[in-house]
Amino acid sequence: MTDEPGAAERALYLAAVRGGGRLRPEDLAPADRHLVAPHPTTVRIGRLLARGLTQRAVATRLGISERTVAGHISRLRDRYGARTLFHLGWHLRGEHHG
C-alpha cells in the first residue's frame, strides 16, 4: 500500500491551496468527478430539463442566456456520460427531480 493520496484527496488539497475551498470537477480525475456537488444553477437547470422544458424556456425562466444554459447542459452531460440530450433527460428523470 502506498502513502500517495488518491485523486479526491489531491483535489481537496488543491481546493484548500487555492483558498476558495470549493472543489471543482476539473480538479478530479474523470472517474471521481461525481464526488463534486454540481453548481446550484446546474441543479436548477437539470430539474427544469427533467420537467420537459426546452433550453430556450429554461434560459427565459432563469433570466440567463441560452449559451449559459448550454454550458450547464454540457457539464450535466459530462457528469452523467450522456451522449444526447434525450439520454441526459432519461438520467435526470431517474433521479426524481421535482
Results as ranks from 00 to 15, higher is better:
92 L>H: 06
74 S>R: 14
67 R>M: 06
76 L>P: 02
72 H>S: 06
20 G>H: 14
30 P>Q: 05
16 A>H: 10
60 T>L: 13
35 L>V: 09
12 L>R: 15
91 H>I: 00
46 G>P: 01
21 G>P: 08
47 R>W: 01
18 R>V: 03
35 L>N: 03
89 G>V: 05
91 H>R: 12
75 R>V: 13
47 R>K: 08
84 T>N: 07
39 H>P: 08
90 W>S: 11
62 L>K: 09
71 G>T: 06
89 G>F: 04
87 H>P: 01
82 A>C: 04
50 A>E: 07
1 M>E: 14
80 Y>T: 01
27 D>F: 13
19 G>W: 07
53 L>I: 04
33 R>M: 05
5 P>D: 09
28 L>I: 12
2 T>N: 13
85 L>I: 09
59 A>P: 03
26 E>P: 02
19 G>L: 10
83 R>T: 12
92 L>F: 10
93 R>G: 06
49 L>W: 07
46 G>D: 03
68 T>H: 14
51 R>M: 09
67 R>D: 01
92 L>N: 05
11 A>D: 13
49 L>Q: 02
68 T>V: 11
76 L>E: 01
92 L>T: 02
94 G>I: 00
18 R>M: 11
49 L>A: 08
58 V>R: 03
67 R>C: 00
44 R>I: 10
6 G>T: 10
63 G>H: 10
58 V>W: 01
68 T>P: 00
50 A>H: 11
73 I>E: 09
9 E>G: 09
57 A>F: 02
43 V>W: 11
48 L>M: 12
80 Y>K: 01
54 T>A: 01
55 Q>C: 00
58 V>G: 02
49 L>N: 03
88 L>M: 08
93 R>C: 04
72 H>G: 03
75 R>G: 13
54 T>G: 07
39 H>S: 10
63 G>W: 11
45 I>P: 00
94 G>M: 07
37 A>Q: 14
43 V>M: 12
89 G>A: 06
12 L>H: 14
66 E>Y: 00
67 R>A: 12
49 L>G: 01
62 L>T: 05
60 T>E: 14
6 G>N: 15
54 T>F: 00
65 S>I: 07
36 V>Q: 09
59 A>L: 07
68 T>K: 09
52 G>L: 06
94 G>H: 05
10 R>H: 14
91 H>P: 02
51 R>P: 02
60 T>F: 04
92 L>P: 03
69 V>H: 00
96 H>G: 03
24 R>M: 13
86 F>T: 14
42 T>K: 11
70 A>W: 11
84 T>H: 08
87 H>R: 15
78 D>T: 07
8 A>C: 04
44 R>F: 08
74 S>H: 15
9 E>Q: 15
53 L>F: 12
